[in-house]
């Protein structure tokens, strides 16, 4: 029992490390990820920043917390691609024929993606600070806010994992990984206050987890009352993890 637990931990560590080596060695992935986010941040701030009314605060103060949340939403689309790649290139077959712990392959993928999110968050916070963003809350709240973003990323990554092992080829994974995140990102309080949307869209935006995530991050980074959005986002996180983790494992274990 003890050895199987330590095997699980070491197998997850080995695969997490493998994915991270691959990620940091492929410059196009890294550059795509990092630059795209930085460019988006600059564009939104300077193009829309002047036009969107955010109730007194500067646009970067309104926008950056939500933008940090968005990083993990788009980041999770790469999870599907990574899994599909391992499937089509025969790694999944090889791994499944090894005496390694069964949950290690998928869990290693999620953990390495979590590390990737931490890296991107740090990068984007630095760029934000240069652009004039200022934290306005206690240190612990700020850390809690960033940690919640990573947790949200983990939840969405399990969705990405499930999509990745369900579609089985890289091109489909690329598309399937993206289609579901666009409405989530744009029909939320992330770029604009919900009050500016038509009624039916407001209804969607209010239950959208990205809205809760953006709201919570804003409060934790800038101060204010957090309670209701916090419960909502935690419920989303653990709900998504429970559902998609079990779906993904079921499919992985039964895969033909």
């Amino acid at each position: 029992m003890m050895t199987s637990f330590s095997h699980l931990i070491s197998d997850i560590a080995v695969l997490t490390r493998r994915n991270l080596i691959k990620y940091f060695r492929l410059p196009q992935l890294l550059i795509f990820n990092a630059t795209l986010n930085v460019v988006l941040l600059l564009l939104f701030n300077y193009v829309f920043g002047g036009a969107i009314k955010t109730g007194g605060v500067s646009y970067i103060q309104y926008f950056l917390p939500g933008f940090l949340a968005q990083i993990v939403v788009f980041g999770s689309t790469q999870t599907s691609v990574g899994i599909a790649e391992d499937l089509t290139k025969g790694f999944v077959d090889r791994f499944r024929s090894l005496p390694m712990a069964r949950p290690a392959f998928l869990t290693g993928r999620v953990l390495s993606d979590a590390v990737r999110y931490v890296f991107l968050l740090i990068l984007l916070v630095i760029v934000g600070l240069v652009m004039g963003f200022r934290f306005d809350n206690g240190f612990l709240s700020i850390i809690a806010g960033l940690a919640l973003i990573v947790l949200f990323g983990v939840a969405l990554t399990w969705v990405g994992v499930f999509i990745g092992i369900s579609v089985k080829d890289v091109e489909t994974a690329q598309v399937a990984g993206f289609v579901w995140v666009f409405p989530l990102v744009f029909a939320s309080s992330l770029y604009v206050p919900i009050a500016t949307m038509p009624g039916w869209l407001q209804a969607f935006a209010k239950i959208n987890p990205v809205t809760s995530m953006a709201d919570v991050t804003r409060v934790l980074l800038l101060g204010g009352s957090v309670a209701s959005s916090l419960w909502k986002i935690l419920a989303w996180d653990f709900g998504l993890i429970a559902l998609f983790m079990s779906l993904a494992f079921r499919r992985y274990n039964r895969m033909a």
Binding site: V14, R18, M100, A104
Partner: peptide, 8 residues
């Protein structure tokens, strides 16, 4: 090495 480690 990765395969070796996954064979424990």
């Amino acid at each position: 090495e990765i395969i070796g480690q996954l064979y424990h």
